[in-house]
Simulated assay, not measured.
Amino acid sequence: MGQDGGFRAEEIDTSRPHPARIYDYLLGGKDNYEVDRRAGDELAAAAPEVRIGVQANRDFMRRAVRHVVGAGVRQILDIGTGLPTSPNVHETAHAVAPDVRVAYVDNDPIVNTHAGALLSGSGTTSTVLADLRDPQAIIDHPEVRKVIDFDEPVALLLVAIVHFLTEADEPERIVATLRDALPAGSFLVLSHATSDFADRRDAEAVYNQATATLNLRPKAAVMRFFDGFELAEPGLAQVPFWRPDAPSPAGSETIGIYGGVARKSA
């Protein structure tokens, strides 16, 4: 589904919280429902650092985008886009290089609709309704192919999305499928929630009634998603400490989100 795709109201599930809408609420956005706000409040009660954590994750994404564009990449595939929060990926990228092309992918019709409205008329972006659990369909999607040339380096963004894949979804296989579609010189930008810094089983439980469960993983498991890539310094780090460009907020050492940027050399 491209920018011009409309969705019937009944296609949008407002009976259960959705990760993108919870995230939007925690960032102070308005594109969410009461069920999402309740889940967000429960999440903040279970993990008090969650609000500074989601902001730190957004800031990591922007620093990572500036890094990959600065390294010469001119096309970005952002899977698990989330609701538009300015500055967006394309805004961040275009501030460095106006010719960067971006394909946004998300499985929530609300996200797709908002992104499509935001990007209407832009020939350098596309918005696609698709699911990370079917990576080949994303790679082959005509709206993705309209802006992404897989013969040239691509920055693949999997920011705060892989932790919504269960082990049954085979997340390592999914990431490897996407990796194998990328040519040498491409980048992977990935962030992932963890309970390495605090017991966050209560936070995981908040998502049991959501449209996707939260699956916290230790550092060693997150590292495996970078197989076939070479991590840039400082390696896999808590997101506020990945190449910070401003002082980290108080409590940053408790943020349970890892982030890394890595290059595919062959």
Rank of each mutant, 00 (worst) to 15 (best):
A103Q: 01
L178T: 00
T211H: 08
P98Q: 08
R16W: 00
A130T: 11
D99A: 06
A262T: 06
V96L: 03
D108S: 09
V35N: 01
E10I: 12
D180S: 13
A45Y: 00
D134V: 11
V175N: 02
S122I: 09
V189Y: 03
R8A: 15
S120M: 12
T85P: 09
A46K: 09
A221L: 11
A205N: 12
F7A: 12
G6P: 04
V54M: 13
A176T: 15
D196E: 14
N112E: 12
G80Q: 01
L119N: 07
E11G: 12
V206N: 10
D149I: 07
P17S: 05
D31T: 11
A212C: 08
P98K: 02
E172I: 12
F164K: 11
D199T: 10
R217F: 03
P247H: 02
A9I: 14
D202F: 00
A262N: 04
E152W: 07
A220C: 13
P171L: 05
G70H: 04
G2F: 10
A160T: 09
H163Y: 08
D151Q: 15
V239T: 02
R58A: 02
F187S: 07
D245A: 06
L26Y: 04
D108N: 06
Y33G: 10
L119V: 00
V105Y: 03
D59S: 08
S126T: 14
T194I: 09
V206Y: 13
V189P: 03
I138F: 03
S120T: 13
T113V: 14
G123C: 04
N112L: 14
A246R: 00
D196G: 02
F60G: 04
A64E: 05
P142T: 10
A64C: 13
Y23R: 04
R63Y: 00
P48M: 14
L156V: 06
R173S: 15
E49T: 02
H163L: 01
S265M: 15
F226K: 11
T166L: 08
I110R: 14
V100N: 03
P218I: 08
A20T: 10
D41C: 09
W242A: 05
A237E: 15
R201S: 15
A93G: 00
A47V: 12
S191P: 06
I22M: 15
H163F: 12
V50T: 11
A250F: 09
D196N: 05
I139R: 07
D99T: 07
L43P: 08
G28Y: 00
G235H: 08
P234L: 09
D108E: 15
E10F: 14
G5I: 11
A210W: 01
T211L: 10
P249W: 10
R66Q: 13
W242Q: 04
H141S: 12
V261T: 11
V69W: 03
G259V: 03
P171Q: 13
S265G: 07
N88H: 06
V189W: 06
G228W: 09
L214E: 07
T213E: 14
F197S: 05
V206F: 06
G2N: 10
T124L: 14
S186E: 06
